[in-house]
Structures are given as structure tokens and as C-alpha cells.
Amino acid sequence: MKKILLATTMFVAASAAAHAEVTLSGDARMGVTNNIASGDTAFTSRARLKFTMSGETDGGLSFGASFRAHEAFNANRDALTSAGSVFISGAFGKLTMGNVAGAAEAAVGDLSGVGFTGLGDYSDTMFLTGDGAEPEPIVQYAYTAGDLAVYASATDGVTLKNYALGVSYTMSGYNFGLGYESTDAADGPGVDGTHLVASVGGTFGAVAAKAVYGKADIGAGTTTQYGLSATYTANALAVTGFYKVADAATKTTAMGLGAAYDLGGGASVKGGLVNVDVDGIEDTVYDLGVSFDF
């Protein structure tokens, strides 16, 4: 992703004094989409700007922060917001706080999705902690040693108290992830639950595949999720398919197929088709458009 130095007198002076850097990046998209909520095909577009700040102390510690432009208004956040993220890292690992993934999500991740809008993100793995679920900032610790990475995260806010643990390992083109998380309401029972989730993936020639399985006990109920995705890449063309089931009080089954063609320079043509079945009621959504990275 191309990055442009934010060249204002104030930031340049700060950079020279503290060996810090402020960069700008962004993304945009435009096209057409059909979604379940409206059932209509409509134009859609979006543009986002991201600020990334980084620096290093005299002792060799790295530090930084990032936020998107639409989050800038919440930069001085109170206890109920989590705009942006801030980190410090060194030989001890990396400590991040703010709008950051929980440990289970960091270790396991999602299946590959389709379309240029996400089409409901039915390929995403569901997590109890992190994944944008909390209004309070998340604190995440990560330590990497070669092919092994371990994660721990927690929140302790007004609405939710939770923690998560995760581990991932890469070996000979294969990758494995395992996560455990626990959550409860700060003001009493109601959303108490635990979740164990795992993933395995690998690259087989031109095909990259991944499978996810998770089981959560939430209150008196149980939620099971499982799915598989695969992407075939040939030069500038990538074709992706996924199958995902989330079985809770209602059972949601989603199947998606999409393609992306890299035009070069950060521009891509993307499109997707997703069929969704919720307890026997089916619907199909699609999109087609152009996305840009700056």
C-alpha cells in the first residue's frame, strides 16, 4: 500500500525530534450491490482515510498508533468508545490497546470472503470477544517466536468483562490456530459464555484453503460454527469460494463464490454472489465493482 508522508511543519518537527513518522493511506470502492435488507440493487461507494503513526525510543522500543478518518472525532474517547489503536513493542512482545482483535480472533481469523462490499460477511468467524463487539477498548498482548505466536486479551469495562487466549503455528506451508474466550456481563448474568475455536489452513500450489470449527456455550444455549474456504490464484485473477454454517437458536448456512482481478497500481475489479439460508428461508445477494488501495 502506498503511503504518503503527512508533510506539515508541526509533524515534520515532531518527527525530527522523536524519530517518529506519520503516514496517510486509504481505500475506496464503487459499484452496485444487492442486499437482503432492501432486496434492491443499488449504487454503493465509500472512501476512507487512515492515519498511521510510528516511532522508536532511544532504547529500541517501537511504538505507534492508527485510526481511520471517520474515527478521528472520537480520538479523545471516553470509557465507552474504542476509536483507533495504540501499541508499544520490543523484545517482550507487543502490547496494543483500543480497537484491536481479541486473542482468539488474532490466532484463528476468518474464512476468505467474496465481493467488494463483504456481502454480509457471512464468511467471518464469530467471536465472543473482540471482532468489534465491545464498546470498551481491548488490551491485547502478542509474543512471536519463530513460527509460533501466542496471544492474550481482555476488557474490563462498563458493559462487558472478558478475556481470551490464542496460539497460532506455521509449519511447511500449513498454519494452525486455536483460541479460547470467556465473557460475562459486568452488571450480572445474561451474556455469560465460553467459546473454543480452531482453524487449519495451507497452500497447495495455486490454491490456498482454510477450515474453521468453533463451539460456544452461551447461557443455556450452544452455538456451533464450521466452514471452509478456498482461493485459486492465476496471475492477476483470484477466484474464491466458501461454505459456512452457524447453528444456534436459528441455523444460518451461507455459500459464496467470487472473483477479483488485479488491475495494478492498487486497483481491482471484484464481484461476488452469496446464497444465505436462515432456517429454510433462502435469499441471494451479489455485488460488482472496483476497489482501490492508496
Rank of each mutant, 00 (worst) to 15 (best):
G157F: 15
G289Y: 14
T41K: 07
E56G: 01
E71H: 06
P189G: 08
A72E: 10
V197W: 02
G109T: 05
D247C: 01
V197Q: 03
I138K: 07
A260Y: 09
Q225A: 05
A79N: 13
V32K: 14
A246T: 11
T284N: 03
A249P: 10
F294I: 09
H70R: 00
Q225I: 04
L273C: 03
G115H: 08
D156R: 06
A14I: 03
A72W: 10
L95F: 05
G39C: 13
A103E: 10
D147A: 07
G289W: 10
T240W: 10
V22F: 13
L178W: 07
G272S: 02
V285Y: 11
A186M: 04
N76M: 15
M126F: 03
L6S: 12
D192V: 11
D78H: 11
R68Y: 15
G264W: 01
Y174Q: 03
A13D: 15
A220W: 08
Y232A: 02
G177E: 09
A83V: 09
G146R: 12
I218C: 02
T252W: 08
T240D: 11
V100S: 05
A246R: 08
A47D: 13
D184N: 08
A186W: 13
V22M: 10
D156A: 08
G118N: 02
A246F: 06
E134I: 02
A17R: 06
F292M: 07
T231S: 15
K270S: 13
G55I: 09
F51S: 02
N275K: 06
M255H: 01
D184M: 11
R29K: 12
K270I: 14
T253M: 13
I218R: 03
E181L: 15
A133D: 01
T252R: 03
D78A: 09
V212A: 08
A107P: 06
G205F: 12
A106R: 01
L61E: 07
V22W: 08
G221L: 09
V239I: 12
V191S: 11
T231C: 14
S38H: 03
G264N: 03
G60A: 00
K94E: 07
F67K: 00
A154M: 06
A72S: 06
D131N: 02
F292K: 04
D121T: 08
V108S: 09
M10T: 08
V12S: 13
T224G: 09
Y261D: 09
T155F: 10
T117A: 12
D283V: 14
L257W: 02
G84A: 12
G84Q: 04
D187L: 14
H195M: 12
T96L: 14
E282P: 01
F176T: 04
L263P: 14
K251Y: 14
A234C: 01
L196W: 04
S182E: 06
T44E: 11
D58N: 06
A83K: 06
A209L: 05
S153E: 07
S45N: 13
G84D: 03
G205K: 13
M171L: 15
Y226D: 04
P137A: 14
S82P: 12
L257D: 05
A254N: 00
T223H: 05
T52M: 04
